[in-house]
């Protein structure tokens, strides 16, 4: 039964015991884009017991350069990533109970899913969801592995409740207008490098090799040949509202989530960020034009033409997504551009 895992079992720190542990574990993966492709394939091939993946998006041609689970046919059919990923991963390893869920990873959905989850993999593309994931992980005492990238730059850090600092300790607040793959581009090796860092930590966590779990925050730039490991012993914030003694899990609070409203009869969704922002529309416009997006603007707003939608962004971070009534799709489009 373990023949297909023989090489992994030969690896001493895993062995047969480790393989049994991997087999008994349930992983929740939030996102099934490029990081999700890398992590999902490695964990499914490794023989994890169950993999639940959540994604709200569908496959597009511009994904194929780096999202290894998908094909031209998936893009042509605009297949939801959760469906295409589930199909592909089941074909890779029929031992694994793979379940793809088409949906937005809201606090409600995540609370519903984490019941018997042993590990959460961050394969998302925005910090709002990561902060929710961070609070969920702390609340339910589940390890999770942060990973993110843009251009040729990537970073990763395993977060173990009760042991390591959490994402809120590191960032203190929701980063505004982070760089995204849709505004600054991305090369496939950078995502793969993040995914391998994440999945290596995942294997250590799933096999309960706790002493081997990395304690440093790693970041690298594959184009500039830089690799940095930062010691995190001083990063834990005792006053942290996500993991400190006075915790409130702020990102599970509806007040701190972006608000989406379908505007009746206009085929438009309005997105309002959790707090007022001050977006530099001019520089965002320049960035997007450089990437050949059709952009129009005035001092008050920026209008970006996308394949089937138009995104209108206001200086305070509010945006209108035209051409859809689907809130999840609108949020996906918004976060693709604004992070």
């Amino acid at each position: 039964m373990f023949e297909r895992y023989s090489r992994q079992i030969l690896f001493a720190p895993i062995g047969e015991e480790g393989q049994k542990k991997i087999r008994s574990k349930h992983v929740l993966m939030i996102g099934a884009g490029a990081l999700g492709s890398g992590n999902g394939e490695i964990l499914v091939r490794a023989g994890v017991g169950r993999l639940t993946l959540v994604d709200r998006d569908y496959v597009e041609a511009s994904n194929l350069q780096r999202q290894l689970l998908y094909t031209e046919a998936d893009a042509a059919e605009k297949m939801p990533k959760a469906v295409a990923a589930e199909r592909r991963l089941r074909a890779v390893n029929s031992d694994v109970d793979v379940r793809g869920i088409i949906g937005d990873a809201t606090p409600d959905l995540m609370e519903e899913l984490v019941g018997d989850v042993d590990l959460i993999i961050d394969a998302t593309d925005n910090f709002e969801t990561r902060m929710v994931m961070n609070d969920i992980a702390q609340k339910y005492n589940i390890p999770w592995v942060f990973g993110a990238c843009v251009g040729s730059f990537g970073m990763s850090f395993p977060i173990i409740p009760g042991k390591t600092p959490c994402l809120n300790c590191l960032l203190k607040s929701l980063p505004l207008q982070g760089m995204t793959c849709d505004t600054a581009g991305i090369i496939a090796p950078a995502v793969q490098m993040v995914a391998v860092h994440q999945s290596a930590e995942a294997l250590k966590i799933l096999t309960e090799n706790w002493d081997a779990v990395r304690t440093t925050f790693v970041s690298f730039d594959l184009w500039r040949n830089q690799y940095t490991s930062i010691k995190m012993s001083r990063a834990k914030d005792d006053g942290c509202l996500s993991c400190g003694p006075e915790r409130t899990y702020p990102y599970l609070d509806r007040e701190n989530q972006s608000k989406s409203t379908v505007l009746c009869g206009r085929d438009t969704v309005q997105i309002r960020p959790p707090r007022k922002q001050d977006i530099d529309l001019q520089s965002l416009g320049r960035q997007l034009r450089a990437l050949h997006y059709e952009v129009k603007g005035n001092p008050y707003l920026l209008s970006v033409e996308l394949e089937e939608n138009r995104l209108v962004i206001f200086n305070d971070g509010r945006a209108l997504v035209h051409g859809t009534k689907d809130v999840a799709q609108a949020r996906a489009i918004y976060q693709r551009i604004l992070g």
Binding site: A123, D125, M155, P165, C181, V194, K231, R234
Partner: peptide, 26 residues
């Protein structure tokens, strides 16, 4: 010097400081 620090930390002669912005892609 490759160790996460706080905003209030004072920089000493010879210290190497690195600024790492969070990126959001994935």
């Amino acid at each position: 010097n490759e160790e996460f620090c706080q905003e209030t930390d004072v920089i000493r002669e010879g210290d190497e400081i690195a600024f790492i912005p969070p990126v959001s892609g994935g």
